[in-house]
């Protein structure tokens, strides 16, 4: 409202610039804030925005990744991905299996554990901390531990066989066999991940007003009904959000697979990201790898769109 009380309101750019107070205000409210913002913004633009745009262009070329020979090939790479490259379909299928695993196993485990933990008063903090430990470990360490534990001759399986007097029932190379490789990696990744999900659910459960539980009690609800009608609706926003995040992450999965099997044996645990990595960095198919990156991003964007649409329709996330 200061503007109204001022006698002469500078209008043209020239007048504004010659007005001392306006200049000072402009400096304080526009220039300096943008100077504060710009370093991080510039770094981000150079690291993410520009390469992302380049990635789209690169996916339309046959560039090998070295040298100057770049030919524009249109959608050839995408055609090859979806219609010629059989390994891509297999990898995509593995991503879907991965997603099915991670949308069920860690969620059930975390939900169950958080419900158990929410009722515990004494020692609750201790459980919480210990169960969270695997989440803070580096993937290189986690995978090393489990590679040893799943070793067919010296791991848990062999010990179990020994104990039960069996031979080669549990002591098999879970990571080395095509039928069990992917699911074993998912199991290991989940060992690391589920505690994190549990903590999120627990925090959400603890923020449910206790009055609601008392009301349920008075209405004669049993524990299952309490869980079903008070706890679950209370943590639904967090659950749905994590459903979205986990669904997205399923298409980005890389570390554990690359570290444990590199996609093997014979492509049994290959996912899009490991394939992309090999194409771009080992096989001199940068253009083709970039196209796979774009496809992954489209899948991720698609999942976000589904959730945004559901949210718009009143499905509160």
């Amino acid at each position: 409202m200061a503007v109204l009380t001022r006698k002469k309101k500078p209008t043209s750019v020239f007048e504004k610039l010659s007005d001392e107070t306006w200049r000072r205000k402009f400096l304080r409210n526009v220039i300096i804030p943008w100077i504060f913002i710009s370093p991080l913004l510039i770094i981000h633009i150079f690291v993410v925005a520009i390469p992302a745009v380049q990635g789209v262009y690169m996916s339309l070329t046959d560039w090998t990744g070295i040298g100057m020979n770049v030919n524009f090939v249109g959608l050839d790479n995408y055609h090859r991905l979806f219609f010629e490259d059989e390994t891509f379909g297999k990898s995509l299928g593995n991503n879907v299996i991965w997603m099915a695993f991670f949308l069920t196993v860690p969620f059930i485990l975390a939900l169950f554990c958080a419900a158990m933990l929410a009722q515990v008063k004494r020692g609750g903090m201790l459980y919480r901390s210990i169960l969270f430990i695997p989440y803070v470990l580096a993937s290189v360490v986690t995978t090393t531990i489990w590679k040893n534990l799943l070793n067919p001759r010296q791991g848990i399986g062999a010990a179990l066989d020994n104990m039960l007097g069996l031979e080669d029932v549990f002591g098999v190379a879970f990571l080395g066999r095509p039928e069990s490789a992917l699911i074993s990696i998912a199991f290991i990744d989940n060992w690391h991940f589920w505690g994190f999900l549990m903590i999120l659910f627990l925090a959400a459960m603890q923020s449910i007003p206790p009055v609601l539980y008392d009301a349920a009690k008075i209405d004669g609800a049993n524990r299952w009904q309490e869980f079903r009608h008070v706890t679950l609706p209370g943590i639904r926003p967090v659950m749905l959000f994590m459903y979205m995040m986990v669904a997205i992450w399923s298409f980005l999965a890389f570390d554990y697979i690359f570290l444990l099997t590199q996609g093997g044996p014979a492509g049994a645990s290959e996912v899009i990201a490991t394939q992309l990595y090999k194409n771009a960095f080992f096989r001199f198919q940068a253009g083709y790898g970039a196209a796979q990156g774009v496809v992954i991003s489209i899948f991720a964007g698609f999942i976000i769109m589904i959730f945004v649409t559901l949210r718009r329709r009143g499905w509160d996330i």
Binding site: P33, P51, I248
Partner: peptide, 28 residues
């Protein structure tokens, strides 16, 4: 300070935070 363009910038970071690393790792 909310300088002009702040909302656009927040939108930029919101959209950018959903771009997977795989989209830009090769050019990067």
């Amino acid at each position: 300070k909310r300088p002009p363009g702040s909302d656009l910038l927040m939108l930029y970071f919101l959209v950018a935070s959903t771009i997977p690393l795989w989209m830009y790792i090769v050019p990067l």
